[in-house]
Design a protein around this nucleic acid. Sequence first.
DNA 1: ACTCCCTTCGATACGCTGTATTGGCAATAT
DNA 2: ATATTGCCAATACAGCGTATCGAAGGGAGT
Lengths: 236, 236
Amino acid sequence: MRQVADTPSIWERPEPPERRAPSPLSRERIVRAAVTLADAEGLDAVSLRKVAAELDAGPMRLYRYIGTKDELLDLMVDAVYAEIPPPSGSGWREVARSYAHGIREAGLRHEWLADLLDGRPRFGPAAVIHAEATLTALRAAGLREIDTIMSTVEVVSTYLRGALRTEVGERRAERASGLDEREWQHAMAPHLLAMFATGDYPMMSEAMHDAEHRDPTERFELGLGYLLDGIEQSLS
Amino acid sequence: MRQVADTPSIWERPEPPERRAPSPLSRERIVRAAVTLADAEGLDAVSLRKVAAELDAGPMRLYRYIGTKDELLDLMVDAVYAEIPPPSGSGWREVARSYAHGIREAGLRHEWLADLLDGRPRFGPAAVIHAEATLTALRAAGLREIDTIMSTVEVVSTYLRGALRTEVGERRAERASGLDEREWQHAMAPHLLAMFATGDYPMMSEAMHDAEHRDPTERFELGLGYLLDGIEQSLS
DNA sequence: ACTCCCTTCGATACGCTGTATTGGCAATAT
DNA sequence: ATATTGCCAATACAGCGTATCGAAGGGAGT
């Protein structure tokens, strides 16, 4: 009955003790440095070399604390989960909103998060604590059955992650071009106008000219509201 | 009234003509090779060197057809849009479902798509055609106002992209470990059981043991249903 | 107290990436 | 026939993750 994985995951492997005390390195310090770097310069800037340099160490030194770069990324995600307050609220809708907002805000604080949240749940310690708190709050707020609770979380989290990627993607594009969305549409104008001039795309034209321009938060809230309405309807 | 961007985007730049005929390279052939490679070995395997090698060319030769690797990725996305059938259906719900399914299936056929769909709409020719068809079909199916139509598309697409990432992420993890989800949970067992043994995570335990196991398509459908119900409710 | 060993660190190195640069060649224009 | 243009391949550079390895150092055994 072999259950132990061939290589134990980062969550199981204990942090190696410090022997001498020349420079007090630790997993936590490494992760903090990586997060800071990612916040400041983007995920692409997080290289083992740069993280190590930030800590006055050679790149290879990090390999005593992390097994691989991917593990470092996992640890970064868990570090963000540790920042997110447990969802709260009196009704289940409030709790679900609180859950969504907590993660969304973390994702806007750390724009690289959306790139690392690929769906499969992370079982880092902070993520587990956050998940437990979420489920508990939902039950306490009135959702009885575990299936209902799980469906709600899954669906909200799915929408959430999509929205986060949209939003972060827009921010990045804006920053890259120094233009906000309206300006960016104008920059695209030569190409788009040419298409629209053909008259082949009347709906796109109408959308671009007449559609209401909602800010990201409004859009997020709107979709989340639809989702919760749909779930509520399924409860009765 | 300067509207022309400093560097014209790939959509505007004409494909260079072939002069001599030593090896008939073209933007389309390059993109096809890249897509094939990405399908077979993942997006990380798409390097200009490998794509070029596939076409019996040196890496730098590609730069006559694409300005940068990112442009190649944009072209790949547009190539996928070209595969997606225009949404159809008699009611707007059907059309919305058709829209979602079309993109979802493309995303499952080309698992790298989810990584490139970051939110900001791509204005490649195929993407524009697909978008126009989507909006048109929704109006024809009964949604009158452009704002309603746009909100519906935005919200569904947001959910869709989140779901696609989840699903693709799971597939990748399974393939990487050779385990399906249930087995994977068992592989995680040492770590998870240790956590659960503390009794600190009763909800997580319950979820893992008692919650219904839905397959990805069911889950997708469930969430999409909630969303459409919520939208429908807002129409009245 | 001395020696041995085992751990850990830094340096080096490999194979890979995207792409800037450069030099030569071949086809076209005069 | 000559001048010019434009393209392609080769080379080069800076960066990446990480495998390997020699040296150094502290802890343990005698």
